[in-house]
Design a protein around this nucleic acid. Sequence first.
DNA 1: CCTTGACCTGGAGCGCGCTCCAGGGTTTTC
DNA 2: GAAAACCCTGGAGCGCGCTCCAGGTCAAGG
Lengths: 119, 119
Amino acid sequence: MATYSPAQAAEVSGFSIDTLRYYEREGILRPIARTSSGHRAYTDADLGWLDLVHCLRDTGMPIADLKRYAELSLDEATLAARVALLEEHDRRVQESIDALRRQQERLREKIAWYREQGV
Amino acid sequence: MATYSPAQAAEVSGFSIDTLRYYEREGILRPIARTSSGHRAYTDADLGWLDLVHCLRDTGMPIADLKRYAELSLDEATLAARVALLEEHDRRVQESIDALRRQQERLREKIAWYREQGV
DNA sequence: CCTTGACCTGGAGCGCGCTCCAGGGTTTTC
DNA sequence: GAAAACCCTGGAGCGCGCTCCAGGTCAAGG
């Protein structure tokens, strides 16, 4: 199995090296394997998880929730709970998309109104 | 013209009293009229502006941009610039909606994958 | 009158999510 | 074998957008 240096992991995942360390400290990443000299060696599994983390962060999941999800992932028996968590998050994402669209509609009405005033 | 106490303005606008004062300090609200005793008296025009502010904040416009917009509003001759600013913002809102939808799609694929694994 | 509650100001504090730094080891390149 | 590049740790700092506080003024009800 291939491993990745911190710089490579940052490159692939799209997070900065500092952010990767921060996530590890926060318990969002399980402790990353180390080389004999103590340098981190990220695995494909780590990068796969980081890919999901990116998706969840981009959709506004807070760090604290991500941490809870990561803790659940340590126990195989929590699969259903994890799916439930993702589905709950999906609902919240849908709500924020809807809210955004509603406000965008109001914004466009405002612009149209300006246009009518002869701008 | 009706006026509104800080508490009423907060009630109507949906911002807290502290936030209203903060916005005034930041120059997002022009200086609010005062009663003889120095208490703020918000006008209908102030509340109308706050309504737009709420829309812009809800769609993610930063405080700094809002301030620029407010400064433009002081000069009648900047109507076109203001509309341009709103349209630019509308584009950014559209982009974030699109990004959110793309990530939501990935999230749903992940959930579907879990489901296939027999959750 | 006196109490109660809303309001005032200037400035400090906070929660979030990073980001940066000092001071030190390691590994790669020439 | 020396310089340059990369990595380590613990902890401080930061940008944003509020939110709260101390210490004081003002106004309406009983």
